[in-house]
Computed example of a mutant assay.
Amino acid sequence: MSTDQKTQSQQILFTRGVPPAEALPAEDLGECFDSVVRNDTSVVLQYGQQRGYAPLRKQLAEEYGVSDDEVLVGNGSLQLQDLLSKHLVNEEDAVFTEQPSYDRSILTFRRNGARVTGIPLEEDGIDVERLERALEREVPAFLYLVPDFQNPTGATLSLEKRRRVVELAERYGFYILEDIPYRKLRYRGEDLPLLRELDSAGRVITVSSFSKLLSPGMRVGFMIGSKGLIDDLTGLAENTYLAPVLPTQAAVSEYIGRGMLAPNVESLKELYRPRWEAMTSSVKQELPGATMFTSNGGFFVGVMLPEDANTQNLVGRAKEQGLVLTPGESFFADSDDGEPPRGERFVRLPFCAVTTDQIEEGVSRLAGLV
């Protein structure tokens, strides 16, 4: 076997945040699909249910303490972010994000005409002082946050900062879009309140999905907002894709109704916790000069490499060593201070879909390159 072939056979993927095959509850989901298709045929296999499958909306409304009319279920949370952007963003409006932030969301907001500005991220979440200075210059259509185990860094927004961000939204009159797909995957510590739980002025819109808890392929996401906002987005959704994908939404509802979701989340935490521990310990050992964001859950550990690190063509050189990385620049929006973002020094390290051995070897390869 040649060196290239050997490297390829030992390829390690530190790219997308995807669940591994062993995390997908295929047997149980299969039973749920079979049940809803056979027993609710006239609804599940038809057009209609524009806000989403009614029993699932009811379950979500009960969980989040809202009315059914404040819940919209769509084809993944990113599609709902797209609809919200179309509705709220006029050409050249600003949208603020954390810096770095989820690359797909940045692209989605830009595609809808927004100027996306990143506010630096600190160990305990967004830099609120920098956010306030940016707000003095311009009020965005909304601020996009991943407050729990952020993508791409793994950082969590502190309770103090949650309160301050909500206060700023009320004072300046902008929306906060809180994206919480990783919230239930906590491996250490106690839950912090949702931003919407701290909001008395209706400025927080919550979005999430079942991609990390059940299956990304099912494309079931949901949004919680005021009835008026959900009314508007429902009309836009109908004009965009006519009807939601009811079989997958119904299967998720059946899965929840059978009491399977909570035990599955616990199983996922048992599966992922050793991988999270391996990633955090490997980064500390192999990359002592890097700044690692503290991650207590989720799918990612993010690191900012030292200024003297060799980041020249890092993604290309890593691939030659059988290590596949996502370019760090893709997670960076425009800087709030006008300076070029330093995304080439950032590396997102997903840990859920790789083994502990692959994690240790992958971080070692990364250390050898920088």
Rank of each mutant, 00 (worst) to 15 (best):
L305C: 10
G74I: 06
F332H: 07
V128K: 00
D199R: 07
P350M: 12
L72C: 11
D336V: 11
L83Y: 05
L83I: 07
A94C: 15
A250Q: 06
R203W: 01
L314P: 00
N239E: 15
V18H: 05
P25G: 12
V37C: 13
R365D: 05
E123Y: 06
R273G: 02
S211P: 04
S282Q: 06
I180A: 05
S35P: 04
L349A: 01
P263H: 07
F109K: 04
A309C: 12
T234E: 13
F149K: 03
R196I: 15
E70F: 03
E307G: 08
S330D: 12
G154C: 03
Q50V: 13
S211G: 15
Q50L: 15
F14A: 03
F293K: 00
R219I: 07
E329W: 01
G48S: 11
N313H: 14
R111I: 04
D336Y: 10
E339V: 11
E190S: 15
G221F: 01
E238C: 13
Q99R: 04
P20V: 13
A367W: 02
F14D: 00
L177C: 10
L24A: 08
P20H: 12
S253C: 12
S282R: 04
P274M: 14
L121V: 08
T234W: 03
R275V: 09
P340R: 07
A290S: 11
Q11I: 04
G322N: 06
S101F: 02
S67P: 05
N239P: 03
A21K: 11
P340N: 04
V18P: 01
P244C: 10
Y144M: 09
R164D: 15
R51P: 02
E197W: 12
F331C: 00
G297M: 04
G362W: 00
S208K: 03
G298V: 02
G30Q: 15
E360G: 09
R275D: 07
D127L: 03
V18W: 08
N75P: 05
L29S: 07
I224G: 02
V95N: 01
Y64V: 08
G154F: 00
Q11F: 09
E360V: 14
L13V: 12
G362P: 01
L45P: 08
G322W: 09
L229N: 06
G173Y: 11
L45A: 13
D308V: 10
M1Y: 13
